[in-house]
Design a protein around this nucleic acid. Sequence first.
DNA 1: CGGGATCCTACTCGATACTG
DNA 2: CAGTATCGAGTAGGATCCCG
Lengths: 135, 135
Amino acid sequence: MAEREYASARDMLTAYEERCANTDDGIIMRELLDRIGDKWALLVIGTLAFGQLRFGDLRAHIPGVSQRMLTITLRHLERDGLVTRTAFAEIPPRVEYALSPLGHSLVKPASALATWAIERIPEIRAARAHFDADT
Amino acid sequence: MAEREYASARDMLTAYEERCANTDDGIIMRELLDRIGDKWALLVIGTLAFGQLRFGDLRAHIPGVSQRMLTITLRHLERDGLVTRTAFAEIPPRVEYALSPLGHSLVKPASALATWAIERIPEIRAARAHFDADT
DNA sequence: CGGGATCCTACTCGATACTG
DNA sequence: CAGTATCGAGTAGGATCCCG
C-alpha cells in the first residue's frame, strides 16, 4: 500500500476512499470476518487444506471443538461455497468434507496471516505484558 | 501448503500436526482472531495504514463505528503493540493514533486477505443464494 | 475533543440429551 | 456416525450521560 507519493496522510486517505467508494470496504471486511472470523472456521479450512475428512476425523483433529460448533461451522462454510459436503447413504452414515476450489483459493492468504501470527505472537505478548505492567 | 508428495491425505495431516505440535496452531489462531477478528480492528488498521489520524478523524473515516467501540478497539490494538497513541496536553485535547512497525507488518497479509475477499465475494454470494434456494 | 462509566439487549458458544 | 434440539452463562456491542 501507499506506493505513490502524497502531500499528506489525509491526501492518501482521500485517494483510498475514492478508490474503494464503489465496493465499500467495511461491508466486504464484515462479510469476510463473518465467515472466517469466528472461532473455528479458519481451523477447519486449515485442516481440510490437506485433504478431505469425515466429520469425526475432522473433530478429532481440531482439539476443543464441540460437536455442535463443528456442525454449525461446516454449514456456514458449505453455504458460502468454501467447503463441499458429500453424504453416503450407508449404515453407519458417512459424510466427507472437502475444500472446494474457492475454499482452496483462501488457503494461501489465510496461511500468510497464520505465518504472520506465528512469527509475531512473541512480540505481541511482550507488548501486552509491558502495557499491563504500567496499568 | 502440501508441497511434498504424500501417500494419503491422512499422512499429510500427520506431518502437519508434527510440524505444528510445538506451537499449537489453534491457540495462535485464536489469539490472532481475538485481535483482528472483532468487528472494527481490521478497519482501523486499514485506515491507519495511510498515516496517523486523530480520534475524531478516525471515527469519521469508519462509518458506523460508535465512540465506545472505537475506544475499546484502539485500546486493544495499543495493548498488543499494533498501534501507538500520542496524547498532547493541549486545550482542546489532541490524540494521534498511528500504526507501529509491528502494526505495519500486518498490513500486507491483511490486505492480501482483503483482496481475496473483494475478488471472491461475488462467488460467495452466488453460492449462498444457491444454497438458500434449495433450503 | 477525547474519552470513561453504565445500562441493556442480542447473540455466541458450551454442555447435555436425544435421533435416524 | 453424524447430526438435531434445548437450555443457560457469558459477552459483544449500541445508546446514553458525564467529565477534564
